[in-house]
Simulated assay, not measured.
Amino acid sequence: MPNRTIFVTGASQGVGEAVARHFSVAGDSNIVLVARDSVRLNRVARELQDKGCETLAVQADLSNVEDCRRAVKEAETKFGSIDVICNCAGLTLRGDIFNTTVDTFDSLFAVNVRASFFVIQTALPGMIAAKRGGVVINISSMLSYGGPSFLLPYAATKAALNVITKNVANTVKFERIRVHAINLGWTDTPAEHETQTKVHGLPEDWATSEGKKQPFGRLLKADDPAKLCVFLASDNAAMMTGCVIDQEQWVAGTLS
């Protein structure tokens, strides 16, 4: 499926960057990269251009709804309608029922829920008008099942994102637009590395040591959800929609 336009938020590093790279390897030539960090974003864009992709880097603060809408409109201006949306941007701020501030709560919902909602809302009319179908993939979390006490508002955002996923999938099914979410397990990314070392005080090799404790012997890497995104957006997953997929080595709802 060449010449599709792939729209990726959080594309300057981590899962978003990996998603963009894997779609480019799969043969998708139009890649829209959206993130707040313009330096990292432009680096990824240049590297993909060097590999033959046509890229558009959109610096945007996704906590701002107008930036979400602008990013979609810039993509449509350059490439026409969007074929695949991957909402990978997210915050993982800490907070429990006792100490979560209003600012923390609002920041998490603004980026993790509202941004994805209005990106999808803005892009869907063009996707429907193009009559090519399409795919939306939201990066959610295993913590949507409840999560630890210190990640309450974060977990709540991912639960909300999963409800949006299923509702939108049902809404656009006859337009042949497929909508999925990935409940991502513990993943080694630059943002997670910063959190574990600076917030929780773990050593630099935390990912290796913690990975050895996992059933499959390692933490997830950004490439894992990226490969799943490429699959979900391919013809191999043509008869799937509304799926919330646990990409995790621990089984939800069971006890060790």
Rank of each mutant, 00 (worst) to 15 (best):
G10D: 12
Q13C: 11
Q13H: 13
V15L: 14
V19Q: 10
A20G: 07
R21P: 01
S29E: 15
V32M: 09
V32N: 00
R36M: 05
A57Q: 06
A57P: 01
Q59R: 14
A60V: 04
S63R: 11
D67H: 05
R69K: 15
F79Y: 13
V84K: 04
C88K: 12
G90A: 12
L93Y: 12
D96R: 02
T100W: 04
T101R: 00
F105R: 08
F105S: 04
A115T: 09
S116L: 05
S116I: 13
F118M: 04
A130L: 11
G133A: 15
S140D: 02
S140H: 05
M142L: 12
S144W: 03
G147C: 05
G147P: 01
T157F: 05
T157E: 06
K158S: 08
A159T: 07
V163W: 09
A169P: 00
N170G: 15
V172M: 06
I177W: 02
A181S: 15
A181E: 06
T187W: 06
T189W: 05
A191G: 10
H193T: 15
H193G: 09
E194L: 12
D205Y: 04
W206V: 04
A207H: 05
E210L: 11
K212W: 01
F216P: 00
R218C: 02
L219S: 07
L220G: 11
D235K: 12
A238Y: 01
M239Q: 12
M240S: 14
T241S: 14
V244W: 01
I245L: 09
Q249Y: 07
Q249H: 10
A252M: 00
